[in-house]
Design a protein around this nucleic acid. Structure first.
Lengths: 339, 339
DNA sequence: GTGAAAGCGCTAACAT
DNA sequence: ATGTTAGCGCTTTCAC
């Protein structure tokens, strides 16, 4: 339990009777040192339990092997799955993850705020709705950046985006298989949210391809919450719109809200109303009827972000990459074509 | 977009026509420098956009202002809420958070593995079931540590623990208000899980205080999943045990499983069977009937861990602290005494 | 294949 | 109140 000052490269050098340069080489460029000396050095390292000082290392190499990941104030599963995927990939590649949540709450301060670590080799930044100031702040940060969710290709930055279009089309076609396009609704999250916008757009577009120009009331925007879905459903039901309708929700929680709202209005799901969610969170498998939903592979997204970021760190001049993560429809019970 | 080598304290010193020491003082011990010079320095700093090099700083101070947080492979909300609370508190105290998930999967390697950062000022380590090797590895790490969940007081280490006992007692008494002790069941998670163990123990103890020695079948252990709750409920119902019974589940998901199982067995909740969950996750508010549950303030736990850790970092010789985070019963619809 | 030596950018005595 | 100076522990030329 004696807590001495940790051993330095000096100590190892002395113990192995070599210079510090040699020790350093053994650790970083082993091919430059003879097997015999390398062996002596390794023994000394082990004997002393030597660990290089990361600060001294960083001072020289300007590398920390730490990546930052900044997430907006999103909840629960979305957050944790993304992070889990990112962390696993980072570990794989020899990096650690510095997190910063609720980044949207950043005040203009720009000081030692959430992003200004100055200790990370790169930053994975999730932007879920327009936020110029965040983006500018991140830019000034002058470190490799990969942007999540937002499509900033025009800015020439690496980005990982969810292929909302494919998933939305698939889901919409699924509903169109048993319902008329005029009976379909999209109930999204916030109007500014990138994902919601793309999903709504693809929804309308798919209807158009089915020869139907969506009425304004066929798309609705609120927030990513059960409550909003519930309110929407109650109102829609009151207007008699929900019977025989199909609903694509902006996420699973909205979908669940719609489901409850429809039920409380005396409708049966999926017999009277078909519902498809988005994200395929745990919730979708838990509720009854089991929720059909568009699967968004959160963990993959996190992993992809890290992969792209590490590539950029190692090759600053590489062409900007845009990774499009696929989404796929998972059909469960809330939308199955009832006889 | 000119990406020069960043400005150093030297540059600032020259620009402000002072020594580097003065610049350093302005930043770290402003009270030691005259307002006039401080002002000049600040201007220079701003003009150059100077940011201290964290590596050089760390090399001197042996401090990074980064705290590690290592979590076992836990899912969803538990994970994210804890992290959110920790991150908020860390930010508050001027720290950043380095996360490491799925730490239980650590191989004995001990190398540059999950914990061996050597870059953090302290580590918040969550241990949810016995794991000596993890603990030893963390020990060797030789950095301030706060342990979450596990009660390691005897080891003289700082820890933050959930007051499972109070919450369990409250929930059990709540059920006892309308049911006989012989009709109560505890359906926990894994038998090794610390929380489950404590909850089971408090449950049995509370029954004992109600003059009832719990039968072996009144406590059951499985895992933290809906499936397990469902299976247990179906079996219990098949034996005719569930009608008129009260169930305290090890977490909300198990509770939900029990709820579904009871329903599928033709029982009504809460009329025929009363159910109380644990944790008060989002799920508890989403399902119908709304789930009564013992609230565990995850965010507070994360925050408390950081607070304790920072205290330890700043005062290595302080008395080991044990923070006990309170739990409280939240009564909703799944357990209300039906007429 | 190995060593000597020069910093990386900063803080903290020690002077003044 | 401010400047001088000596490192912190490492990597990396440049010699040999």
């Amino acid at each position: 339990m004696t807590s001495q000052r940790p051993f330095s490269i000096q100590d190892v050098a002395e113990k192995a009777e070599v210079s510090t340069a040699t020790v350093s080489r053994v650790l970083n460029r082993p091919e430059l040192v003879s097997p015999a000396t390398a062996d002596r050095v390794h023994k000394a390292i082990k004997a002393l339990g030597y660990k290089p000082n990361r600060f001294a290392q960083g001072l020289m190499t300007r590398r920390s092997k730490v990546l930052g990941i900044a997430l907006p104030d999103i909840h629960g599963e979305f957050y944790s799955e993304l992070l889990r995927g990112a962390d696993a990939e980072a570990k794989q590649l020899g990096y650690h993850l510095l997190v910063s949540s609720e980044v949207h709450a950043v005040n203009g301060d720009a000081g030692r705020g959430s992003l200004a670590f100055g200790l990370i080799d790169g930053l994975a930044l999730m932007i879920s709705e327009p936020n110029e100031s965040l983006w500018t702040e991140a830019q000034q940060f002058n470190t490799p950046i990969v942007v999540l969710d937002a499509d900033l290709r025009d800015r020439g930055v690496d980005s990982v985006i969810v292929d909302n279009e494919a998933g939305t089309r698939e889901a919409t076609h699924h509903l169109l298989a048993s319902l008329r396009p005029n009976m379909l609704y999209f109930v999204g999250g916030g109007k500014d949210n990138f994902d919601t916008r793309q999903r709504a757009k693809a929804f309308v577009q798919t209807l158009k391809e089915a020869e139907w120009a969506a009425r304004p009331d066929q798309t609705a925007f609120g927030e990513y919450s059960l409550d909003w879905g519930y309110r929407w459903a109650k109102e829609a039901a009151a207007k008699g719109l929900l019977k025989g309708a199909g609903v694509l929700a902006g996420n699973d929680e909205i979908a669940y809200g719609v489901l409850e709202g429809a039920r409380d209005a005396g409708l049966r799901v999926p017999e009277d109303t078909k519902i498809v969610g988005f994200d395929d969170t745990r919730l979708a498998r838990l509720i009854r009827p089991r929720l059909s939903t568009v699967r968004v592979p959160l963990a993959d997204i996190g992993a992809a972000a890290i992969r792209v970021l590490v590539r950029r760190v190692n090759d600053p001049d590489a062409e900007p990459a845009v990774v499009r993560v696929p989404t796929t429809l998972v059909v469960r019970d809330s939308s199955t074509a009832a006889a």
